[in-house]
């Protein structure tokens, strides 16, 4: 007997919330990126898990693949920005980069 779908969903929810907490807690931009990755993976897990409900179509997995692609892009550009910002402000603490504040 396979563990029920619920367990996967619980895990995904947990991972998402943890990722969210990481994004909110860490005073470092790269750590925030890590949190975002965690959240993306949680949603991917959800997509794959729900795909089991409809085994005939593989839409869930397809979506998961696209998410991975987007995650890659995000990580690449995000890191580039982080480096650039770091070089400019000599910090990667997001609170201190508040020049866009109205």
């Amino acid at each position: 007997m396979m563990p029920s779908l619920q367990h996967l969903l619980y895990l995904a929810a947990f991972l998402f919330c943890t990722g969210l907490a990481v994004v909110m807690v860490k005073r470092n931009t790269i750590m925030m990126l890590l949190g975002i990755e965690l959240m993306l993976n949680a949603s991917n897990l959800n997509l794959v898990a729900f795909n089991r409900l409809y085994p005939a179509s593989l839409d869930g997995q397809m979506f998961a693949l696209f998410v991975i692609i987007v995650a890659v892009c995000e990580a690449a550009v995000g890191l580039a920005i982080v480096l650039r910002v770091y070089q400019h402000y000599q910090t990667s603490v997001p609170d201190e980069i508040s020049e866009l504040k109205g």
Partner: peptide, 14 residues
Amino acid sequence: FQAGKIQVYIFWAI
């Protein structure tokens, strides 16, 4: 709420 801190924004959004 409008402190210019991303993480606080996120908190309120969530």
